[in-house]
Amino acid sequence: SSYVCVECNFLTKRYDALSEHNLKYHPGEENFKLTMVKRNNQTIFEQTIN
């Protein structure tokens, strides 16, 4: 599966890399929402900020 930060167009295969991205680029933000999307037999988790 892949993880994408929709706000930044940041894409990674690792959830911990997304967490690091959030700490660096969205410090103090807590209203993240992950949406699971299936595309071409791949699972993509799209992160948006509410």
Rank of each mutant, 00 (worst) to 15 (best):
S1E: 11
S1I: 15
S1Q: 02
S1V: 03
S1G: 09
S2G: 06
S2T: 13
S2P: 07
S2H: 06
S2F: 04
S2L: 11
Y3F: 11
Y3D: 01
Y3S: 01
Y3W: 13
V4N: 05
V4D: 12
V4L: 14
V4Q: 09
V4I: 12
V4H: 15
C5L: 01
C5M: 00
C5Q: 00
V6N: 14
V6L: 04
E7R: 08
E7T: 08
E7N: 11
E7H: 08
E7F: 05
E7Q: 06
E7Y: 10
E7S: 10
E7W: 03
C8V: 00
C8R: 00
C8L: 00
N9H: 13
N9R: 10
N9Y: 04
N9F: 11
N9V: 03
N9G: 06
F10Q: 04
F10L: 10
F10S: 07
F10V: 03
F10C: 07
F10G: 02
L11D: 13
L11P: 15
L11S: 09
L11H: 12
L11I: 04
T12H: 12
T12C: 04
T12P: 03
K13I: 07
K13N: 13
K13V: 11
K13P: 15
K13F: 12
K13H: 14
R14N: 15
R14T: 15
Y15N: 13
Y15R: 11
Y15P: 07
Y15S: 14
Y15I: 03
D16E: 11
D16C: 14
D16V: 10
A17M: 14
A17H: 15
A17Y: 13
A17V: 13
L18C: 03
L18F: 02
L18I: 09
S19R: 10
S19Q: 15
S19L: 09
S19T: 11
S19C: 10
E20D: 14
E20S: 14
E20T: 07
E20A: 05
E20G: 08
E20N: 02
H21L: 00
H21T: 00
H21Q: 00
H21Y: 00
H21A: 01
H21I: 02
H21R: 00
H21E: 01
H21K: 00
H21N: 00
N22C: 03
N22E: 01
N22S: 03
L23Q: 10
L23F: 11
K24S: 12
K24D: 12
K24L: 12
K24G: 09
K24N: 08
Y25A: 15
Y25T: 13
Y25Q: 15
Y25G: 13
Y25I: 13
Y25E: 15
Y25P: 02
Y25W: 05
Y25R: 13
H26W: 01
H26M: 01
H26E: 02
P27I: 06
P27G: 08
P27W: 08
P27F: 10
P27C: 05
P27V: 05
E29P: 04
E29L: 06
E29F: 04
E29V: 12
E29G: 09
E29T: 12
E29W: 07
E29D: 02
E29C: 09
E30A: 14
E30C: 08
E30L: 13
E30S: 10
E30I: 09
N31G: 12
N31S: 11
N31I: 06
N31T: 09
N31Y: 03
F32L: 09
F32S: 13
F32W: 11
F32P: 10
K33L: 04
K33Q: 03
K33M: 03
K33F: 07
K33N: 08
L34R: 09
L34S: 13
L34G: 10
L34T: 15
L34F: 02
T35I: 08
T35R: 09
T35V: 14
T35D: 15
T35G: 09
T35P: 04
T35N: 04
M36K: 10
M36Y: 05
M36L: 08
M36V: 07
V37G: 10
V37F: 06
V37E: 13
V37Q: 10
V37W: 03
V37C: 11
K38I: 03
K38E: 08
K38R: 09
K38V: 03
R39T: 05
R39E: 12
R39A: 08
N40M: 05
N40G: 12
N40R: 04
N40H: 07
N41C: 13
N41W: 02
N41Y: 03
N41E: 12
N41K: 14
Q42R: 08
Q42A: 11
Q42F: 04
Q42G: 09
T43S: 15
T43M: 06
T43C: 11
T43Q: 15
T43H: 15
T43I: 09
T43K: 12
I44K: 07
F45C: 14
F45M: 14
F45L: 10
F45D: 04
E46F: 02
E46G: 02
E46H: 15
E46R: 08
E46Y: 04
Q47A: 01
Q47V: 01
Q47Y: 04
Q47P: 02
Q47M: 02
Q47L: 01
T48C: 10
T48M: 10
T48Q: 06
T48P: 05
T48K: 05
I49C: 11
I49H: 03
I49P: 06
I49S: 07
N50H: 08
N50A: 11
N50Q: 05
N50F: 07
